[in-house]
Simulated assay, not measured.
Amino acid sequence: MLTKNIELDFGKVTIHENIIIAKLNEGILFDVENNKKLLELGKEIFNQKNYGYISHRVNSYAVDPMVYFESANTKNLKAIAVVSENEMTRRNADQVERKFYKGNNSFEVFQTLEEAVQWIRTRI
């Protein structure tokens, strides 16, 4: 399995075959500008190939829900998964963030990274 680690100013990204896994820094606001950087990275790495994105929330940070509008319009981004062991983080992603993701592609929330990876692979 191809694995590549990339350090960004707002967190660490790991590329696994056709999946981007991001662990963002404690206390940041993940906003539209940060999301553009991730989408550009996806475009650069995967070109036109389908891929999935996993937000592995090991740290506490805020997400601007506006990021989902642009993500939903990225044709080859086929699935977004949020992973957290924290029940409140999962609930917030499921009940709030999901409402902003208005795309034909999938958005799901998981407790473990393994579950998210398996699910993403069924979507791409």
Rank of each mutant, 00 (worst) to 15 (best):
D64L: 00
I80G: 08
N73Q: 14
N105P: 08
I80K: 07
V58E: 14
E70M: 09
N73A: 12
Y101M: 12
D64A: 06
L77E: 13
N76T: 08
N104W: 05
T89L: 06
L77M: 14
N76L: 04
R90T: 05
N59W: 01
T74H: 12
N73P: 00
E87Y: 04
Q95V: 07
D94V: 00
S60E: 05
A79D: 11
D94H: 09
S71Y: 02
V83K: 07
I54F: 03
K75E: 15
N104L: 13
K78D: 07
V83N: 11
G103P: 08
N105Y: 15
R57I: 06
N104A: 14
H56I: 01
N59Q: 06
Y101V: 09
R90S: 04
V83G: 10
A93I: 05
V67L: 07
I54W: 03
E97H: 10
S55T: 05
V83D: 10
M66R: 09
S55Q: 06
A93K: 09
G103I: 14
K99D: 07
N86S: 07
H56Y: 15
A81P: 01
V96A: 03
R91E: 09
S84V: 05
I54Q: 03
G103Y: 12
A72G: 14
S55N: 12
A62S: 11
M66H: 03
V83H: 08
N59V: 00
A62D: 06
A79Y: 09
I80D: 11
V82K: 04
H56Q: 04
A93S: 15
E70T: 04
N86G: 01
N104E: 15
T89Q: 14
A79H: 08
Y101D: 13
I80N: 08
D64P: 00
N105G: 14
E85T: 03
R90W: 04
N59G: 01
G103T: 13
T74Q: 13
Y101E: 14
S71H: 04
R98D: 12
K99Y: 03
Y68L: 15
N76S: 11
A93G: 10
V58G: 04
S71G: 15
F100R: 01
V58A: 05
R90C: 13
V63F: 03
N92S: 10
F69Q: 11
Y61R: 01
S60F: 01
Y68F: 15
N73Y: 13
E97V: 00
V63Q: 02
V82F: 15
A81M: 03
A81C: 05
I54C: 02
D64W: 00
V82I: 15
D94Y: 11
